[in-house]
Nucleic acid binder design. Sequence first.
DNA 1: CGCACATGGTTTCATTATGCAACCATCGCC
DNA 2: GGCGATGGTTGCATAATGAAACCATGTGCG
Lengths: 161, 161
Amino acid sequence: MTRNSLAEKNCSLARALDVVGEWWSLLLVREAFFGTRRFQDFAANLGIARNILSNRLKRLVTEGVLARMEGAGGAVEYTLTRKGEALLPVLVTLMQWGDAHANDDPPPVILTDRATGTPLPPVEVLAADGRILTRTDIRAMPGPGADIPLRDRLLPRQSLG
Amino acid sequence: MTRNSLAEKNCSLARALDVVGEWWSLLLVREAFFGTRRFQDFAANLGIARNILSNRLKRLVTEGVLARMEGAGGAVEYTLTRKGEALLPVLVTLMQWGDAHANDDPPPVILTDRATGTPLPPVEVLAADGRILTRTDIRAMPGPGADIPLRDRLLPRQSLG
DNA sequence: CGCACATGGTTTCATTATGCAACCATCGCC
DNA sequence: GGCGATGGTTGCATAATGAAACCATGTGCG
């Protein structure tokens, strides 16, 4: 089947999903944000099979999302790279969406502003002047990397509405 | 194998991924944002196998992300619900991350502010007072829905650093 | 040294998901 | 009644997943 490699698609979203869109990948990144560094802790906290964990960690390391470091005592540690840390807005928006729309129970985790102790407000898509943008306020334009079919598809109707 | 059902996990992110984390799901949602509504158009634009497309559309409809409407002429249309539209920040942050970190080529799609024509600035996680928050500024606290193991795990070290 | 134990995996096998191609069902049109 | 378009479903080969067993290295400790 060769699970269709999304990486070859002419689309930033597909490329992103090719790296962090596999089963468990984003959960591993979230664990790393929470401070988990050890193989066993990832396995225990997430309940992921160890062979899959091994594969995912390797993949995330080769993609530059995590860094593998062998500590002094032979301990192996996986930590976020800058590229991995840049996933913070993705994780936060997904968690917020899950709380608001995919979970009937009270939220299990609340992210708070460390300086004030207050919960984080919802992350919004903002314009340069600070306006909150919704679907109809945004236009998808073909960029310099767009191929012909994509360009043809985006030009006729340039609104996200 | 019963691909570990993430829905039962005590975690908003896992619940979110259980709904939109399957292969193709977020790409279908993005297509819907771009204006695609017809079965054939989804298939043609994404190159997804039709049985998989059928499954994904069904799933997204039962999850309330898409709505299936039969038009007058027997035409079937899939459109975003409010729940689906709420995924906008997720899509935008993922696309921005893909452009910045997972794509060496120039961006294929540029999202612009329709009012000004300028590209969208990066979506940031903001505090209530507007400060940009990074990993170390955020604390993960157990919420009212946290089970005992999660609570124990979050309490000792409450920073995302 | 000898041996238990922890860590970080790899291997094997049954089950499930995916992609591809072919086939089916309904509708509108002529 | 035949034809095409639309929106699927079915069968089959292949790839990914999960569970459990196994392996390899390092560390403490008597």
